[in-house]
Design a protein around this nucleic acid. Structure first.
Lengths: 174, 174
DNA sequence: TATTGTTATACTCTATAACTATA
DNA sequence: TATAGTTATAGAGTATAACAATA
């Protein structure tokens, strides 16, 4: 008799419905995710949602989110960066970057300086306040990463970073 | 002289702005993501965006998305599943699941059967058409995974699945 | 009282077309 | 003609409060 646990699928019975066990306990039966669990994409989605929510929580006291933190970081590390370069580096569409920059500029964390040699473009620079907030945010994110990935040993962490890098580098270049 | 490449930060110079190199070539200078690159969360976000977009492309011919594919899979594997259980298994809020179920039901891929013993609840079951579409979708997703993760060797793939599993299981249970 | 499914709503993220001012 | 930044807009995804029917 099929049960909620250990449901397995093969090409042979793929079309045969597996009946729900009517004698299962009335309190929550186990839901089998045996099929989905085979896919790395499924695990990535689930894990990333947890990480992102958790990171945003860690940045909330500084009124930053993952994306505004990332933008601020790139501006601090690359003063004079233009919006189009930043959009490209963050893999964000230019129109969507505008509101992010507006937000950071409105809080006086960065400035939009005109580029004298190209009056269409802005050179983005962090203000002193922006640099200070960034330093605090960096600490918060570092603390978060240690906590969020505490179950991972060093090798696992390096494998993840290398493997994820392969994916988005291929997308960038291929 | 600081350049766009190889910008590194230490606590000592964290507050000192690194000037943009005004002599950099007018064509795209390199943007340093040295700081961000240290964080696993950053790599996960970038990689997951690529994978999700790619998977949705693979499912598009079947008019499914990642979330509708996942829902259909769980219903096929667990006939009689209730919406609240499915929402829980998918880590989706119940209100948001309603429209997903509406969509699958509207396409006659699943049915909402009343549960005789609890007239508040629905027992979700895949129709024959739903089972057929699911079998085709499963093939598409399997093909996609082989292609999407072609740079990963078997060990890497297993490490990812195990490591990601640790994150969302902790979230689920802790 | 508590739970199942639902409606309404809102906020974020993402994606595209079209405009302006410059080059 | 092409590019940088902008506006407007639309579609997903996600989250919460509150309701009707039922337990």
């Amino acid at each position: 008799m099929p049960s909620w646990k250990n449901v397995r699928r093969s090409s042979g019975d793929a079309m045969k419905p597996v009946a729900a066990d009517p004698t299962a306990t009335p309190d929550k039966p186990q839901v089998s995710d045996a099929t989905l669990r085979r896919f790395a994409g499924y695990h990535m989605k689930r894990a990333f949602n947890v990480i992102q929510a958790d990171l945003n929580g860690a940045l909330k006291p500084l009124e930053l989110r993952m994306i505004t933190f990332s933008a601020l970081t790139l501006i601090v590390d690359n003063p004079g960066l233009r919006q189009s370069q930043l959009a490209d580096a963050l893999a964000v569409e230019r129109p969507n970057l505008v509101v992010i920059i507006d937000e950071l500029e409105g809080r006086d964390l960065i400035v939009r300086d005109r580029v004298p040699t190209d009056r269409r473009a802005y050179a983005l620079k962090a203000t002193l306040a922006g640099q200070h907030l960034h330093a605090r945010a960096l600490e918060a994110v570092e603390t978060h990463e240690v906590r969020a990935f505490s179950e991972w040993d060093k090798d696992t962490r390096e494998t993840i970073i290398r493997a994820m890098g392969l994916i988005h580098r291929r997308d960038r270049e291929g």
